[in-house]
Design a binder for these strands. Structure first.
Length: 736
DNA sequence: AACCAGCTCAGCTCCAAATT
DNA sequence: AATTTGGAGCTGAGCTGGTT
């Protein structure tokens, strides 16, 4: 047999019949993780046909296999069977036999009996010996083998090329009715075979049985070896092939009959007569034949016995002869040469040369009929075996129960296990379907729960995160600005717009935005740096200086009484910034009013509260007047306009040049007390100027304008204020 | 071209030492 | 004792070069 590396076996899940050793190994590994508990003898038996070679250094354990495996790597040198012949010494024969048997037959038979098979010779159940419990597949292998091949006692059960050849033996060296086998049947391992058997012997009878067994075992040990060597095909015997069966067996016996030795003499085996003086000298061939006949002594008591070589016995008839315990019948009196225990077999009783004609039909006719019956029985068994094999193949991965007492029990346990596993499998499939549905639902929920969907879920949220009044307005902004938004593969346009507006509304850090949208902070930085100017440019049209007609038609009631020609209410607001590194910038942005570094913007609103003008950013130290002069605000002023401002806006001359008027609160400088008219005018101005403060407050709702603006955002401050103002203009009227 | 990890730089905060 | 100064450490944002 081609030897297979053990490592390759470990990855072979084919579970071929020849790989049963792997299945056993796997089974034992599953039973115990402590390899020290493995019996070295067992593992050696299991693996000695799969020894790693070549790659393994001598004396070095194979990788991952340890000492236990190394023991199986190096099998003991066996004596070649070809070296044993009929001239071999008893010691040689004993050594040869010990390969197949064990020293203490009694113990081993009880301990290692694993199965029962029928011997083709004796038709009686024989124990199948093995040092390990058989796996299902091994059992099937035996069943298939025994159904297709004849075999005899004292022979290996399997073919020589089978791995189990030397481990699964029908090699019982005792008779079919030995007490050991009776005990085996009696303890319940094979309940069907118990019928007609004796109860296990105890006490004195047990010791007597063991003495008898030991005596028979010693005899059989010798004859066992001879049964190999006297085959008609000695060359095959040397190649460890099966012992002679069927035709070859008969030929072997015919050859043995031609030997010039007495083959059958019942008196030799009879107690007291076997040692009579003058009896012919026995050869091993004779011993072999006698043992084969000895095993056929089950139910011949009432019959007459005889032999042509011993005419004195030939004529003995049952009515004249009282058989004794050890009387035997020669194989020549059986049609097939072998006594059968099958009641249907014509060789159930000896019928050849019995000295009388008992049956009407000839021996050949009766034997042919028996063969037909046997063939039908064999076919039926094959069908049953196939059925068992099919069941076992379905349960191939089921670990064997440890304490199974019989094949039937084991088979029933397997069937029950299969049924249980099928139910469990169906339940698992149902569970799998439920989990898949749940998984799909959860994925859908997760997609709905991403930040984009979360923000745009309601008007309240969209207002909080972006400052845009409603979701509809946000969607309009998105559709209007999508063409100018920075292209981004990892973020949708909605997310980009959200990112831009959230930066303004909440002044979130770049890293925060990156985590919220699942991108890197560099991507956020790029989006802000590119998107803010573009968005401001796109939304700048929302900051428009209104026409006079529009102003007049939409003038609020609070302005109609005193300031009907008011076109603008101006004020400045400051935004804190980080302290610039450059001293010049630091000086320019220092605000004496705020005592901090700020940037300053001029804001103009219409009487309705809409932002009509926003200047660019100026340093915090810049006065309101300068900002007004340099921001381009005066260019918007038209003839006859009225501008409401705070006290700091001293631009009356510039407005006068535009034929416009400036309305500011009265100064208290150089006066002890304001006149009543001045107080009333100041009150009125304050009453309408409050709206510009409200507008600025709307701008300040964008946290980027109310908190400390980082230096990285200062360059975008113009765009930021523009965008915030545009969004404020999209909100409802400030003054009604 | 878009994206991103890692590096660099600038600003802020805290704290101890120096100065007033 | 109050204020200022300078350094260390931390944080946030931009820059750079590699990857996709």
């Amino acid at each position: 047999m081609e030897e297979q590396h053990i490592d390759t076996l470990q990855y072979d899940n084919s579970y071929a019949i020849d790989d049963d050793s792997y299945a056993i190994d796997k089974y034992y590994k599953s039973r115990t993780s402590d390899k020290s508990q493995w019996k070295g003898e067992e593992t050696a038996y299991m693996f000695n046909t799969n020894m790693p070679r070549g790659n393994s250094k001598k004396g070095t354990p194979a990788r991952g296999q340890g000492v236990q495996r190394r023991r199986m790597i190096e099998p003991k040198e066996k004596e070649p069977i070809s070296e044993i012949n009929h001239r071999s010494s008893e010691a040689q024969i004993e050594r040869r036999f010990c390969r197949h048997s064990v020293p203490d037959a009694n113990l081993c038979i009880l301990k290692n009996a694993r199965d029962v098979a029928s011997c083709a010779e004796g038709r009686t159940p024989r124990l199948v010996h093995r040092h390990h419990r058989l796996t299902n597949r091994q059992r099937v292998t035996i069943v298939l083998t025994t159904s297709e091949h004849d075999y005899t006692c004292v022979g290996p059960l399997l073919a020589p090329f089978n791995k189990m050849y030397e481990h699964v033996m029908l090699c019982t060296p005792i008779s079919c009715n030995s007490p050991a086998e009776v005990k085996y049947c009696a303890i319940g391992l094979e309940p069907e075979k118990r019928r007609g058997k004796e109860l296990p012997p105890t006490g004195e009878s047990l010791r007597a049985c063991r003495a008898e067994e030991n005596q028979i075992v010693r005899l059989c040990n010798t004859l066992l070896c001879f049964s190999y060597l006297t085959s008609v095909e000695p060359a095959k015997s040397r190649r460890n092939e099966l012992p002679p069966t069927g035709e070859s067996l008969r030929a072997c016996r015919a050859e043995a009959n031609q030997m010039e030795v007495p083959v059958c003499h019942s008196e030799v085996m009879s107690s007291g007569e076997g040692s009579t003086e003058g009896s012919p000298k026995r050869s091993w061939a004779a011993d072999k034949r006698e043992v084969r006949t000895l095993r056929n002594d089950t139910k011949i008591g009432p019959l007459s016995v005889g032999c042509e070589r011993y005419p004195g016995l030939r004529s003995i008839r049952r009515d004249q002869w009282e058989p004794r315990e050890n009387d035997r019948v020669c194989f020549r009196h059986f049609i097939s040469g072998v006594k059968s225990n099958d009641e249907n077999n014509p060789d159930y009783v000896p019928s050849v040369d019995m000295g009388y004609q008992k049956y009407k039909a000839s021996g050949d006719q009766r034997y042919a009929r028996f063969q037909r019956v046997e063939q039908r029985q064999a076919d039926k068994e094959k069908v049953q075996v196939a059925s068992v094999l099919l069941d076992l193949s379905n349960a191939e991965n089921i670990p064997e129960p440890e304490s199974v007492q019989s094949d039937n029990n084991q088979h029933d346990a397997c069937i029950n296990k299969i049924a249980t596993l099928r139910i469990e499998n169906e339940q698992l499939y149902a569970e799998l379907g439920r989990l898949q549905t749940e998984n799909t639902t959860l994925k859908a929920n997760i997609s709905q729960l991403n930040f984009e969907n979360l923000v745009t879920a309601s008007d309240r949220k969209i207002q909080f995160y972006t400052g845009v009044h409603s979701k509809a307005l946000f969607m309009w902004l998105l559709s209007f600005c999508s063409c100018i938004l920075p292209a981004c593969k990892v973020m949708s346009p909605t997310s980009v717009l959200l990112c831009l507006l959230m930066k303004l509304r909440l002044n979130l850090q770049h890293e925060d935005l990156a985590y919220r949208f699942g991108v890197s902070k560099t991507t956020i930085s790029d989006i802000l740096n590119l998107g803010l100017p573009k968005l401001a440019s796109k939304l700048s049209f929302l900051i428009q200086w209104p026409d006079k007609e529009y102003l007049l038609s939409n003038m609020p009631s609070v302005f109609k009484q005193s300031y009907r020609r008011c076109s603008s209410i101006i004020d400045c607001f400051e935004v804190f910034i980080q302290r610039p590194g450059q001293l010049t910038a630091r000086a320019q942005t220092w605000s004496n009013y705020k005592h901090n570094n700020t940037i300053k913007f001029l804001v103009s609103i219409t009487p309705t509260g809409a932002i009509s003008f926003v200047s660019k950013a100026f340093g915090g130290r810049t006065s309101d007047k300068v900002i007004t002069q340099r921001s381009g605000y005066l260019d918007k002023i038209q003839h006859g306009d009225q501008v409401l401002a705070d006290r700091g806006f001293l631009i009356s001359e510039e407005l006068a040049n535009k034929s416009a008027t400036l309305v500011i609160p009265a100064f208290t400088r150089g006066k002890k007390q304001l006149s009543a008219k001045e107080v009333e005018q100041t009150r009125k101005i304050a009453h309408v100027r409050i709206h510009v403060e409200r507008a600025i407050q709307r701008l300040k709702n964008f946290n980027i304008l109310s908190s400390n603006m980082s230096m990285c955002m200062v360059p975008h401050s113009d765009s930021i204020v523009t965008i915030c103002s545009a969004i404020c203009n999209l909100q409802p009227k400030l003054v009604s």
